[in-house]
């Protein structure tokens, strides 16, 4: 079994077969994370680069750990420590890392489509670790994996994605992935943070959070991306929290055994109340562990194995 593409750019273009393969492989690999010796030799001699043009703690660390657990060599470039700050173009940076022999480049970039652009330049695999407001496919997969682990299936579940859908690459990846796998996805948030034509992605959109949460198996709360807000999309975080914040009363509308998810980092008291974030339905820390497993699976599927013929 092999993925259809050399790159992981988004879930819009990923087949259900490939998504299932990644999820199954992650399920097999998750056990390694709980071992006393968290290391398998699978990707010895492979080099994984994380190229981050935006600050990130968990995604970058998660990829780095995934690589290290699989014995790949991991190298990190962050904007503040490279020539990126001197204004080098992405093409030139890409050429440089290619010459250095990277096997996979994991990139986060503030501009949508940048990973597609990089993938056109590089022979090496490109993994999108979040591009602008477009997609964050590994987050989508780890969210699906978390739901799958808890619920046993995705098909037929009602998943409510709540908050700043407009700026959210996490929302887009979740929508593509979950709807393809047969879940019912609804989104909710202030009308200024719901992008036009979102329903063409196969979801129902609400401006009343309660309507979306009602009967939900999963409530996935999006981070209010304060750093991406143009002025004036909503009046204040205080009002946002009152009208759109996910709290205990609103979650009472969801199914009794609902899951509460958040991709992190959280703005506590803004989009999510602290008591529910730390409550019994929360999968937020589990998502972090699952993130490593999913990324191990992706690295294995991209790097483990070759295309050349060889005798057994």
């Amino acid at each position: 079994m092999r993925l259809a593409s050399k790159d992981i750019l988004g879930l819009q273009e990923m087949s259900t077969t490939d998504m299932q393969l990644i999820l199954d492989t992650a399920e097999s690999l998750k056990e390694i994370i709980s071992r006393p010796i968290k290391k398998v030799p699978t990707l010895r001699g492979k080099t994984v680069l994380t190229l981050f043009y935006e600050p990130s703690t968990r995604t970058r660390t998660s990829f780095e750990l995934a690589g290290k657990y699989m014995s790949a060599d991991t190298v990190n470039i962050a904007t503040t420590t490279s020539s990126v700050v001197k204004g080098e173009t992405l093409r030139d940076t890409a050429r440089t890392v290619e010459v250095m022999g990277m096997d996979v480049v994991i990139m986060r970039h503030p501009i949508s489509g940048s990973c597609h652009y990089l993938a056109k330049i590089l022979d090496a695999s490109v993994v999108n670790a979040g591009d602008g407001m477009h997609e964050h496919p590994t987050q989508g997969l780890l969210d699906m994996f978390t739901i799958l682990q808890r619920k046993g299936q995705l098909k037929g579940l009602r998943v409510a994605i709540v908050g700043d859908v407009y700026h959210s690459r996490v929302a887009r990846s979740n929508i593509w992935g979950l709807t393809k796998m047969g879940a019912e996805v609804v989104v909710a948030g202030p009308s200024t943070l719901i992008p036009p034509y979102i329903e063409e992605l196969g979801v129902k959109a609400y401006t009343r959070v309660e309507e979306a949460i009602e009967g939900a198996d999963v409530v996935n709360v999006l981070r209010l991306q304060l750093e991406r807000q143009q002025r004036g999309l909503f009046p204040s975080t205080r009002e946002y929290s009152r009208i759109f914040g996910v709290n205990r009363e609103r979650l009472a509308l969801a199914k009794k055994d609902h899951l509460l998810m958040h991709p992190g980092p959280m703005n506590r008291g803004v989009e999510i109340a602290s008591d529910v974030a730390d409550g019994e339905h929360s999968t937020i820390t589990e998502q972090v562990t699952n993130g490593v497993a999913v990324r191990m699976a992706i690295l294995y599927l991209l790097l483990g194995g070759a295309t050349d013929e060889a005798a057994d």
Partner: peptide
């Protein structure tokens, strides 16, 4: 025991082996 991740022929095999769980 699933030994897929420890195979010495991972990079030379045409067909990528499916990883199963070690329990």
């Amino acid at each position: 025991l699933d030994i897929t991740l420890y195979r010495d022929d991972l990079t030379t095999r045409t067909e990528q082996p499916v990883v199963h769980r070690t329990e």
